[in-house]
């Protein structure tokens, strides 16, 4: 039967995609795992209901009505009283079953919501403020000690097994923070701070993407969450807290000059240099990141050169100014930025 085949097909595809990155059904942490479990219980229960209803639907097409009084029906357009009362019993029963099933689903859903809420209140949390911008993410590690407060962009590292509180804010329009392997989405709303707890229980790179339409380049607003063992995370944090490495080769020294002498500095910050712009991603450790332009393309020298020369063709409408960098300056600039590990 075609209709019976649909759920089976769906199932195989769903399991197939469960290994995929950015899939809600491939959990990398307890929040996503709980939602995943809830999904499959809904899926099976609702799937059985679907099959039952479809079976009845098909039965209405067959000759099942042999025992009903056709003659009476033709004149009166009514079923016989026996048929009517029998049908009434079935419909009433089906309604009661529907109510019971929904009750179970509500309890399961609210229970999962509660369990997810409880996951946050563990000791030793890490707090990260995520600020949405058109069209990139500012990531700020909040720490009581100002010297330990780290600002970066579009890539977030978290320690495995430690709960992370995401404080969501927005500079401009509404965005939504969503890393499906770790948790559902939470909107970033101007004038408000939203709150979500995530946690990774195995190391890995989890991709996320803005989930609330935020304008022209909504499609190109991705971020990576890199979950690492605690010691590697600490090492990363220490490195990131350092000011930018001073350029060491002739080429990169020249690149730094190009950067500092151009309009780049009005928007971008590179700690340890005079570039202190606050309107665009912090580039202090740009070279260590995976992607360019909120992960529109991988971070390679070729892509970077293309991005600097003509940002509007790679990500039309984005807010990065096109700066006339002459061809002899381009290579040093790219080399310099890529050296900021």
């Amino acid at each position: 039967m075609k209709r019976a085949a649909v759920p089976a097909f769906a199932l195989s595809v769903l399991y197939g995609c469960a290994w995929h990155q950015q899939s809600a059904l491939n959990p990398g942490g307890p929040q996503a795992a709980k939602i995943d479990t809830l999904w499959w219980s809904f899926f099976w229960l609702l799937g059985v209901i679907f099959i039952i209803v479809m079976t009845v639907l098909l039965l209405t097409l067959t000759g099942r009505r042999a025992n009903m009084e056709r003659e009476a029906l033709e004149v009166t357009h009514k079923a016989s009283p026996q048929t009517e009362s029998q049908t009434r019993r079935i419909v009433t029963g089906a309604t009661i079953i529907t109510i019971l099933i929904l009750f179970v689903l509500i309890v399961a859903s609210v229970g999962t919501g509660k369990a997810i809420a409880d996951l946050g209140f563990k000791k030793n949390p890490l707090t990260i403020q995520v600020t949405g911008n058109q069209w990139w993410w500012e990531i700020q590690y909040i720490n009581g000690d100002a010297s330990q407060t780290l600002v970066t962009a579009n890539e977030m590292h978290i320690p495995v097994g430690r709960p992370v509180q995401i404080l969501g804010q927005s500079q401009d329009v509404i965005h939504s923070f969503w890393v499906p392997n770790l948790h559902g989405k939470r909107d970033l709303i101007p004038s408000r701070t939203t709150n979500e707890w995530i946690e990774a229980d195995q190391p890995g790179a989890y991709r996320g993407q803005c989930a609330e339409f935020c304008g022209l380049q909504h499609a190109h607003m991705a971020l990576w969450v890199i979950a690492e063992p605690e010691d590697r995370f600490d090492a990363w944090m220490r490195a990131q807290l350092q000011p930018a490495a001073s350029p060491s080769t002739q080429e990169t020294i020249r690149g730094q000059q190009v950067f500092l002498n151009n309009a780049c500095v009005f928007c971008h910050q590179i700690r340890g240099t005079t570039a202190g712009g606050q309107n665009a991603p912090d580039l202090t450790h740009f070279g260590s990141r995976r992607g360019i332009a909120a992960n529109t393309v991988p971070n390679t020298k070729g892509n970077l050169a293309g991005w600097i020369v003509d940002p509007q063709s790679m990500k039309p409408g984005n807010h990065m100014a096109t700066i006339a960098v002459n061809s002899t300056d381009l290579q040093p600039l790219v080399d310099y930025l890529e050296s900021l590990k």
């Binding site: 209709r3 809904f42 997810i116 559902g184 989405k185 339409f213």
Partner: peptide, 29 residues
């Protein structure tokens, strides 16, 4: 009949969306 098949599927996925944790994942997708 086509309506009944499709609408039942839509109704069941509606139940999925009514669940807050599931909605967090599938909302706006």
């Amino acid at each position: 009949y086509g309506f009944l098949v499709i609408f039942v599927v839509g109704g069941l996925t509606g139940v999925v969306l009514a669940s807050v944790p599931l909605d967090w994942q599938v909302h706006d997708t």
